[in-house]
Each structure stands twice: as C-alpha cells, then as structure tokens.
Design a protein around this nucleic acid. Structure first.
Lengths: 208, 208
DNA sequence: ACATGTGAAGCGCTTCACAGCG
DNA sequence: CGCTGTGAAGCGCTTCACATGT
C-alpha cells in the first residue's frame, strides 16, 4: 500500500528514523521486533507503518537499515534541506536557533527575528538577530518553509499572521497560546505547561 | 460520568485551561461552542470531555468560568504546587528553568543540575546550577515529583535512571532519544526534530 | 524455519442527534 | 427556546493471526 499514510503513522516515522540512527554502525539489517523494542511500540505496529511506504523488507530476514532510512526520509520529504525561520530571540528562541540537531535532521535555520530593538543585532551561532519588520521579506527571499514561534503568548498571533502572509504554511508554535490560521496552514503546538499538566494527572493516578 | 478520563481527554484539559485563561476577565460564563472555537475542537468534544469530570455546566446557559477552571485544575491534580527538577543547564535547560510560566501553571523548579563542572555554580534566575552528583539526594529532600531532561542524547538514559532511582516517576524528556524506564514511570517526549519532520511531511502533502 | 505483509477483529475516540433541563 | 449531557453510530488506529515469500 503506497499513498495512504495515516497521521498516527506520520508521527511515528521520525521516531523510527531516530532509532535507526541509534543502531550500531555495523548493523546492516533490523527486524520489526528490534525496531519496535527501541521505539517502544509493538512489532505489528512497525510492520503496518512501514508497509505504508512500499516496504523494503525481506521476509525471513528483516529490513535493510540504509534502505529503510532512505525510504522514511523520502516519505517525510527530507530529500532536500528545509529552510526554517525562528521568531523570538529570548531564551527559548536562542536555544532553538543554536540547536545543532537541526542540520543533522535536514533543516537549516535561515533567520532569527525579534521585535525588541535591544535584541536585534545580537549573535547566536552564525545568525544575527534581525527586526521582525524584515521577517516577511526574508521569509520569501530565503525560501523559508517552516516558521517557529518562540515569542511570548501575546505576540504569537501577530507573528503567525505575518508568517502566513509571507507564504509560510507550516508553523511550530512554542508560545503558550492557541493561534488561529487559515485552512491549509499546518500548526503544531509545543507547550511546556501542557506537558507538565498531563504528567501531573498521571502522577495522581499512579499514587491512588 | 466521573472517573474514566481517557488519555485523549487528559491531553485536552490543559488546552481548555489555557483558553479559559484567555477569556475576557469579565466573562462569567462560557458555552461549549465558544470554548470549542478557542481551542480548535468541536463543541461536542468539549462537552464530552467536561462531562467526564462531573460537569458544572448549566443547561441553556453554559459553564461557569471560575467553576470550570477549578474543576479542571482539580482533575489534573493542580491543587498543590508541584516540584520540578531540570537536568542539563545548556541553552534549553536554562531556558526551561528560567521560564516564568511555570509558577502560574502550578509548578516550581526546585533544582537545576549539570554534569559539567564548568557549568556548576552558574546562576539562572533564582537557581544555582548544581552537580548531578547531588541530583538523587536533592530530588528526595525537595520532594521533586517531575524530572525534566534537557541534556544531550547520550546522557539522557543515565539521567533517567538517576531520576527513577530517586523516586521521580514522571519524566519530561527533551533529549533527542528514546529512554527506557520501568513500568509505572510516565515519560513524555518533546523532540524538536520530530516536530519539524512531521511538518515536513504535510508540507509536501499540501504542495502536491 | 523465519520474518514480513495484510485482511479481519477489537478497541477507543470522535461525531451525531436528540433527550433533558433550566 | 438554548445549551448541556449522553446513548448510539461512525471512523480510525491498534492488535491479532496467518498466509506469503525467501
């Protein structure tokens, strides 16, 4: 089965990619059970997920590590480097912009913006903080495909609108608020307080 | 329906809490439709979720903002402040430890640790970076309930083991790797590369 | 013999539609 | 009349079990 990749599967593909990476360098093949153990899911789940992308598995043997890695990267659209813009040069924004893991995963931060004139001009790794006024223009000329919002909550909606108007159709929102976007724009929220609150729930669960 | 709160619902309760917070200060009541619009879900979803915690809704009117907030906080176990420990004082760890939103959400960072002697002693807000050697002891004496891992990938498993042995049964893992823990320990993963890779998938989806 | 690929069953979550109540 | 609360239908995801292929 080729095309119908379910959202649940999409969310797990990057996980498999990581697990493949953590395999011993001399490993040529993996079985669904091995991969499942590393990823913390069931073997059947792994096989179902991988079968969605026209599998390269060999019955009786397993999957080629290199081949499978390539297949997953292609399915995720990681064949070319993707340009990412980060908005908000506070602690979180700088941490994100300076995070080395981007490059290895096929992403490149091509711009870091902030509305505070005091922050503009500051350097983070190879990047120089630019004023938000240049965001839209920079997003277009540098071909940014993904925008990361690392601003306070009250600026998030405004930044989202800016990104959308600049043609950025994928947004990763670290601001602790819900942003509204037009249809066709994909938003993913990462909220620290939310994560802690969910953990809090299960904390009391386990105790009772 | 009182007790059976599904995982999917648990994940949305913090979201509702945020939306309630963003309501105009003079709002006394909300309808499921209003809340749904803010949260980006359906009204039926909101009602189902809220009915799980013995609802305080009034038919024909809506929910009391204050009452509902209290109900959700109680369901999540946010009646007392929860002590959190952060391990890893790199960019991300310092950003997390210094994040003000913790306190407002009912959490308090009671310790920040790092294995690098050069980082130990550094100050982040009110906190002083301590050596990991003191982690287990500090976790116990300060009653830490949640541990946040903000180390590089290769240190994550070791830190997780330390946290578990110190009695921390809830872990929020920002390290780009999968950690193994005993049954009964709850782990949530937040992985930047994973989020970007998922966005990448839908990027190509929308374009084709 | 062994591990993949896959229909089918099982399960949980979402959506619908309406009864119930202020 | 309006909005909540909820059985029931619908849908998607996970798990099972086994046929398939090497």
């Amino acid at each position: 089965m080729k095309t119908p990749v379910s959202p649940a599967t999409v969310q797990r593909l990057p996980l498999y990619l990581r697990c493949l990476d953590e395999l011993p360098a001399d490993a040529e093949r993996v079985s669904s059970s091995e991969l499942a153990a590393l990823a913390g899911v069931t073997p059947a789940q792994v096989r179902k997920d991988l079968s969605c992308l026209g599998s390269y598995g060999v019955r009786g043997v397993g999957y080629s590590v290199a081949g499978l890695t390539q297949q997953i990267r292609r399915a995720l659209g990681l064949t070319r480097e993707i340009a990412v813009i980060v908005v908000g040069a506070g602690n979180l924004g700088r941490a994100l912009a300076g995070y080395g893991g981007f490059g290895e995963s096929g992403f490149a931060v091509v711009g870091l913006f902030d509305s505070d004139p005091g922050a503009v001009g500051g350097r983070v790794g190879d990047l120089v903080v630019e004023p938000v006024g240049r965001l839209a223009d920079a997003a277009r000329t540098r071909g940014a495909a993904i925008g990361v919002i690392a601003t306070p909550a009250d600026a998030a909606q405004e930044v989202a609108d800016l990104l959308v108007s600049a043609g950025v159709a994928s947004i990763l929102n670290f601001a602790p608020t819900v942003i509204g976007v037009p249809d066709g724009v994909e938003v993913r929220r990462v909220d620290l307080a939310t994560e802690l609150q969910v953990l809090s729930f299960y904390l009391n669960r386990g105790a009772s």
